[in-house]
């Protein structure tokens, strides 16, 4: 097993201010960035704040920015960097910082609460839902989300424009709207809830300019833009901007 000394720059600070602090730290074969942060805690910076949990890329806790790219620290191998490369680790820059590498991601919880939940179909009790696999495939892809919020962090709509946070739910939660709108048993429409219209009017889908950064950073490789956001945009067009679809539906309704 080989070891070497790596040069790390880690942002240390709190909402009042902070700076990038240099560290030289030992790295062993097979380690990931989170291992190195833990070694720093153990040897040089016992007060370094970092949020982590599973170390397996499944809990979504250790989101940060490594050399300027939003990534999970536990899934970023040290072998992707040259041995003489400076590795810069900062907290996610779209959210308020709590301390060091820990950010306050409560924006996401607020947005999650704004999305109306699954509406159970009438006449079916728990355990009586039956769905064909091809009908749930699309929604299941979105269920892989580990809520690391890297997509929310990298989305320039809120990252570069704090003022848009009120109007824009962000890719993670627009994906949630898409998931529910594609769900074969969601009875929102029957209950008078138009998910497509609200996606545009209440959750800010129109702000998305499909530049695909959310897809690029997703550690679960969910094709957020192609499979959730663009299909949702097309569904919004059906509802709001396509007179042919409106005409077809009106004629069908009259025939019925």
């Amino acid at each position: 097993m080989s070891t070497y000394q790596a040069h790390f720059r880690i942002w240390r600070g709190d909402p009042g201010g902070g700076e990038l602090t240099d560290y030289t730290v030992e790295v062993h074969d097979g380690e990931v960035v989170l291992d190195i942060v833990h070694r720093l805690q153990a040897t040089q910076a016992p007060d370094l704040a970092v949020r982590w949990n599973c170390k397996a890329g499944k809990c979504g806790s250790c989101s940060a920015e490594i050399n300027g790219r939003p990534r999970l620290m536990c899934m970023t191998r040290m072998s992707v960097f040259a041995r003489d490369e400076v590795v810069t680790v900062t907290p996610m820059r779209a959210f308020p910082v709590v301390r060091d590498l820990v950010t306050d991601v409560s924006f996401n919880y607020v947005k999650a609460r704004e999305i109306p939940a699954f509406v159970p179909p009438a006449g079916l009790g728990p355990g009586e839902y039956r769905m064909r696999q091809e009908d749930v495939d699309r929604s299941q892809e979105f269920r892989k989300c580990i809520e690391c919020f890297l997509c929310q962090d990298t989305c320039h709509v809120v990252r570069d424009h704090e003022e848009n946070k009120e109007a824009f739910a962000g890719p993670r939660f627009l994906m949630r709207v898409a998931e529910l709108d594609m769900h074969p048993l969601d009875a929102a429409e029957e209950a008078g809830l138009d998910r497509r219209r609200t996606a545009q009017e209440e959750h800010g889908l129109g702000y998305c300019n499909i530049t695909k950064c959310c897809t690029e950073v997703c550690p679960e490789s969910i094709r957020i833009t192609d499979n959730a956001l663009i299909p949702l945009k097309e569904r919004v067009v059906d509802r709001k901007y396509d007179p042919l679809v409106w005409l077809g539906k009106t004629i069908r309704r009259r025939k019925a």
Partner: peptide, 22 residues
């Protein structure tokens, strides 16, 4: 808007595709 992921865009305001002409 944006030039690349996690690279700040130079614009002061952003409305995306919510208004005419976009």
């Amino acid at each position: 808007a944006p030039p690349a992921c996690a690279v700040a865009e130079p614009h002061r305001a952003y409305t995306g595709e919510t208004r005419f002409p976009l």
